[in-house]
Design a binder for these strands. Structure first.
Lengths: 137, 137
DNA sequence: TATAAAATCGTAATCATTCCTATTTACAAA
DNA sequence: TTTGTAAATAGGAATGATTACGATTTTATA
């Protein structure tokens, strides 16, 4: 998913296009990893003085709802990244810079067998650590 | 891990035994799944009127630190359960009642190969849904 | 260009969690 | 058994992320 695909998707669903919405999208397109609401506010404040929490969180939720963003919860804070689910995969997440690396392994097929009678709604497989760039500080 | 093992471990580490500490342990021993700080407060309030947040959170942190409790973050809230890591495994977690089922599959061996140069510190593999008991409501 | 619906602002409220000081308690040593 | 002291707790304020909401502004379109 990239910014223009996302704008297209939003239009198709009847949502309006605003400067802030576009900037939020490019922020995540450039980020190439997980970012928090705080990160986003900091980025937008230079352009839009006095931007409201409401705007930030409303759009983060909206984007997640329509599948533009993925969410994960780390250290009591929600982290968002551009959805890259063209195919199913998981992520290594760098604790330092938030950048991600795709992991193709998914053990769910095998797991399903051991969960007969259980209704599986979702699953999460994440690996945490330091990416090569963040190791020598 | 059960209550008496935990008390033993705490003593060995030089921590004092109090009624509250014991009750917190039995709460989790009986729980057989993930519980929140709020759940714990509700449980303790009937016995200890006016119990302090400090006591709750200090002990949750302590128990996590020494390995009595495991933690996971769901819906903006930390969830705790008795540590059952006699061997490495993961969990199915019921969204309704918090009960867990052990999952023996762990794909980390395979994953490590694709993460050369990455420093792996931790990983999380959880399956969410409804357990058989919670499906027909 | 007028209009209605959607988006945003400004700010207060909420919720989980952390922090702080005074007081109480557990337990080891006398 | 008493006592000294470090650890534990109470009570409540503070913090940080997130949500809520009435008033205002902006977008899309007729």
């Amino acid at each position: 998913m990239n910014t223009s695909d996302a704008i297209e998707l939003l239009k198709k669903k009847g949502y309006k296009t605003t400067g802030k919405r576009k900037d939020i999208l490019s922020f995540f397109e450039d980020a190439d990893g997980y970012r928090t609401a705080k990160d986003l506010i900091q980025h937008l404040e230079s352009t839009y003085d006095g931007i409201s929490f409401d705007t930030i969180y409303r759009n983060l939720h909206l984007y997640h709802e329509v599948g533009i963003l993925e969410v994960t919860e780390l250290n009591g804070e929600k982290h968002f990244r551009m959805n890259c689910a063209s195919h199913h995969h998981h992520h290594f997440i760098c604790k330092d810079c938030g950048k991600t690396k795709e992991i193709e392994v998914c053990p769910m097929e095998e797991v399903r067998k051991s969960l007969a009678n259980y209704e599986i709604e979702d699953h999460k497989f994440e690996i945490y650590g330091l990416c090569p760039q963040c190791q020598d500080v």
